[in-house]
Simulated scan of single mutants.
Amino acid sequence: MVRKRILIVNNNLSVGGVQRSLVNLINQIKDDYDITLYLFSDCGEYRKYIPPAVKVMTGPPLIMLLGLSQKQTKSLGLIYFFIRAVLVVYTKFFGNQFPLTILCSTQRRIHGFDIAISFLHNAHEKTFYGGCNEFVLKRVNAKQKITFVHCDFLNYGGNTARNREVYNHFDRIAAVSEGCRESFIKAIPELESKTYCVYNCNEFSEYKVKADINPVEYSKGGLNIVTVARLSEEKGILRAINVIKRLVDEKYNICWHIIGDGAQRSEIEKHIQMAKISENVILYGNQENPYRYIKNADIFLLPSNHEAAPMVFNEAKSLGVPIITTNTTSANEMVKDNYEGIVCGNSEEEIYNALKRVLEDSFFILRCKDYLNKQIYSNEIAVDQFFKLISEEPFKNDFS
């Protein structure tokens, strides 16, 4: 039996939820399909997890600009550093449609695939980021073209007329949760019939193995909270620092361990210093093995203003750590309230109430841990959803 040839396009394999989801999916389906991975930049910490059987393609240097930060572009030479800087400035004033068109056109048209998948959704047009959707539509010949949505489309900042128009030209849209699907359909209701739910895949056995490698032992007698997240505005870190400050002032013994880095780090550090809670909120930066920090925590906290379908929920649950999350797009779908943790209101006061509840109910964490440790975690549903996604007859594709 001839296996379907699938081309998957992404910007890079740097640390991030989309990249981790991509790697996990590839490892789940690698034996069922002939997979080629096209990366704008063949770099990133997750590159080592791509199995040898998967062919990896990269494009010409100008395409690489879409997969590198400005700092990383220096490795290509000053001319590329300068070109990217100019395109970033142009994008801020005029949008990214022209830069994306020019950069993608440097890649000769790719042929010979049954299915082409854009795995990364677009950002706002004034951001020099993305391009996978345009690349698949304009530079790849395939019988069927699919795009993934890893965001709360209504609220993530890229719900624009141009982006909505681009999605009309795909045969299938795969949202990574039912909540993400509902958000996308509210934004573009005419695409409901070809928008599917395909859950993220997880490497549950890997989480457990890595969690047992030199696991962090936290001090006893207090509440140890862990967060693994990008340090950016939508994650709601600053408002949660206010909550921790309030609880510390009320004499609760509490320590929040934050793993991750991002654009908001310096602002977060200043906020911690001003609140005088440096001993209660600790930043560890990016860690190659975040699971060793999660394993012995009492609570996993995600205080986001908006979220899609965070992979860290399943990571924490599979390690038996209860979750406190704000009620974002997929929270109730992914966290069973009162059993796997708490889904609280999306406000500073509700985060405070949730943590206060845990602090005052000495058995809550034990009940949740007992429930979580009895569950079976697998990718069966996610893989089945993917199989169904690509087994459908293709729609007419008229994008040019």
Rank of each mutant, 00 (worst) to 15 (best):
K4G: 01
L7E: 02
V18F: 04
L25N: 05
I26A: 00
N27L: 07
N27K: 06
I35M: 08
I35G: 05
E45F: 07
P61M: 05
L62F: 15
S69K: 11
S69Q: 07
S69R: 14
Q72W: 03
T73P: 01
L76N: 01
L76Y: 04
L76Q: 07
F81L: 12
G95Y: 09
F98G: 00
I102N: 09
L103G: 10
C104Y: 01
C104A: 11
I110V: 10
I110S: 02
H111W: 06
I117H: 01
E125V: 02
K126M: 08
K126F: 04
F128D: 00
E134A: 11
L154S: 15
Y167A: 13
N168H: 08
H169Q: 07
H169M: 06
R172I: 11
S177I: 00
E178I: 05
E182M: 13
I185Y: 03
I185S: 04
I185C: 09
I188P: 03
P189W: 13
E190I: 14
S193V: 14
Y196N: 11
C197M: 15
V198N: 01
N200T: 15
N200H: 11
C201D: 05
E206P: 11
Y207A: 03
A211V: 09
N214K: 08
P215K: 02
V216Y: 00
Y218E: 06
S219E: 11
K220N: 10
G221Q: 10
G221I: 09
L223V: 12
L223K: 05
V228F: 07
R230S: 00
G236P: 06
D249P: 10
E250R: 13
I254E: 06
C255G: 03
W256D: 07
Q264W: 03
E267P: 01
H271S: 10
I272M: 02
Q273F: 08
K276V: 12
N280C: 05
V281E: 00
L283I: 06
G285M: 06
Q287L: 06
A297H: 09
I299N: 02
F300G: 00
L301I: 06
L302D: 01
S304W: 00
A309Q: 10
V312W: 04
S318L: 04
L319S: 02
T325W: 03
N327T: 08
M334N: 03
Y339C: 07
I351T: 06
Y352V: 09
A354W: 02
D361V: 04
F364T: 10
R367N: 13
C368F: 10
D370S: 15
Y371M: 07
L372T: 13
I376W: 05
S378V: 15
S378D: 13
F387V: 15
K388G: 00
I390V: 13
F395L: 14
K396A: 02
